[in-house]
Write a protein that binds this DNA or RNA. Sequence first.
DNA 1: AATATAGTTGACGTTTACGTAAACGTCAAC
DNA 2: GTTGACGTTTACGTAAACGTCAACTATATT
Lengths: 146, 146
Amino acid sequence: MNASTKIDKDDRVQFSITELAEEFGVTSRTIRFYEDKGLVNPEREGTTRIYSRKDRGRLKIILRGRRLGFSLQDIKKMLDMYSPKGEPTGQLTFTLQKCEEQLEKLIAQRTDINEAISELEDGIAQLREHLASGDNVADGCKKTIA
Amino acid sequence: MNASTKIDKDDRVQFSITELAEEFGVTSRTIRFYEDKGLVNPEREGTTRIYSRKDRGRLKIILRGRRLGFSLQDIKKMLDMYSPKGEPTGQLTFTLQKCEEQLEKLIAQRTDINEAISELEDGIAQLREHLASGDNVADGCKKTIA
DNA sequence: AATATAGTTGACGTTTACGTAAACGTCAAC
DNA sequence: GTTGACGTTTACGTAAACGTCAACTATATT
């Protein structure tokens, strides 16, 4: 049980926690944390975690979900509703709904950020004026920004 | 000490905590919290906080700072460097620098958000396709979103 | 006086996504 | 037979910006 059980090289079937951690640019602590939260459930060899390709896939999904701003809770639900055998219709509509919600949130955020950016740009311009004119601001400037 | 000390109506000189809380749409607890953090320092009449117009101005600044995404710490520094008597030059350049930093952060955030939005829009489109075609997704869909 | 109203302090709770140490097991290599 | 790398569990810590609650106090009105 050595050369035969040992995996070849690149298209692995099993992965260690650190391998996946490195591959995805997170710490193993993070991956264990996801397990705590019920997002992954690797096999065990004794106590050591053994990750399958499927587990790896789930991790990929989790990480993308995070990038897209989903909470781990939402991601869990999406994954949970996926696993059953047959019709993933429920899961699909759920995911779709969550995606749409998130999309709206992001758009709202973008709006906010755009406003903040405008305000800041204006403020910066005014600050520069004051600094250039050596203005002895007494009480008027703070109204601009701070 | 009633009709004379009582403020007239609109261009007040003193404010209670709840007045300001309502005006700015925050709870009084929040305002006290800001005081804890050293952002405001209202007078006291006994134990009761009395906010001056200046305090109110500071609150305004604080709230705008929050909207612009500054941390309370940064806001505090901006405010702190303001109060001294003379040249607010130091404060101005500090504030300016912070503003520029924040502007960059916000722009970076906007970029991230825009990417996320694109990804989400794509994902949503694909989910819709699958749902429309009644696709019996086995393992391919989850690669899309979840 | 007693209730009502507003205000205060202090301390702990909340949320999210992990970090960080402690203390120990396991396995291969030297 | 020890070293070192990697792994495990348990559990408390962190950061930000408040919320919540309990127990008082102070003032005003009934």
